[in-house]
C-alpha cells in the first residue's frame, strides 16, 4: 500500500483510551487479539498512531500489530463507515446470486466494493464465508447477519439503515 492512504489523524483522547486498554497486557503478546478487539470498538481504524500506542504499551513491534491487523478481514487500517457491509465472497453465496445482490447495493449507495460513502455512513467490503451458507446469499452489517437475500430484499434492508440508526 502507498503511504498516503494512512495520512489521517486519530484524536489524542482516543489514543489515551487505547493506551489504557493495552497497558495491562505488557509483555503478553498472546493477548493481542483481545486488545485489538477492544480497541476496535472505539477507533474508526487502526491508524499508525493507534498501532504505535498498542505496540508501545504492550512492548511489541509496530510491525507485529500491523501484520496482525491486515491479516483479519474484520479489522482495517483505513477509516471505514459507521456501518460496514460485508458481502460474502465464497462460492456457495456466489452460485446463489451474490453478484446480483452486490450490484444492487453498489448502485443504491453509489460506491463500489472497498469504498466508503462520502458521508461516512457505509463501507462496502468483501469477506470470506460467513458460515451462513445454508441461507446464502448472505451479508453482515456490523454485528448483524442477514441471509436469503435477493436484490430487492437487499435494497430494502439498506434503506432501513439509511433511514434509522440500527444499534
Amino acid at each position: 500500500m502507498s503511504q498516503e492512504q494512512y495520512s489521517y489523524k486519530t484524536p489524542e483522547s482516543l489514543l489515551v483510551e487505547v493506551a489504557d486498554i493495552a497497558a495491562p497486557y505488557r509483555d503478553r503478546p498472546e493477548m493481542l487479539m483481545k486488545v485489538i478487539t477492544r480497541v476496535q470498538k472505539i477507533v474508526p481504524a487502526f491508524s499508525e498512531e493507534v498501532a504505535r500506542v498498542i505496540a508501545r504499551e504492550m512492548d511489541i513491534t509496530l510491525t507485529q500489530v500491523y501484520s496482525f491487523v491486515t491479516f483479519y478481514a474484520m479489522l482495517s487500517v483505513k477509516p471505514r463507515g459507521k456501518y460496514i457491509i460485508r458481502m460474502c465472497k465464497s462460492a456457495p453465496c456466489h452460485v446463489r446470486g451474490a453478484r446480483e445482490v452486490v450490484k444492487a447495493v453498489e448502485d443504491q449507495l453509489g460506491i463500489s466494493m472497498g469504498e466508503t460513502t462520502p458521508d461516512g455512513r457505509f463501507t462496502l467490503e468483501y469477506c470470506p464465508c460467513l458460515g451462513l451458507c445454508d441461507s446464502s446469499p448472505a451479508l453482515m452489517i456490523n454485528d448483524r447477519a442477514y441471509g436469503n437475500l435477493n436484490p430487492q430484499s437487499a435494497r430494502d434492508l439498506i434503506k432501513r439503515y439509511i433511514r434509522e440508526d440500527v444499534e
Binding site: Q3, A51, T61, L62, T63, V65, Y66, S67, F71
Partner: peptide, 19 residues
C-alpha cells in the same frame, strides 16, 4: 522486526508497516 507479512492469501506481501 522491520518487515512482516501484510494481508493474507493471494494478497499477502512481505513489507514494512503502513507502506
Amino acid at each position: 522486526h522491520v518487515m512482516d507479512k501484510e494481508n493474507r492469501g493471494f494478497h499477502s506481501i512481505v513489507t514494512t508497516p503502513y507502506g
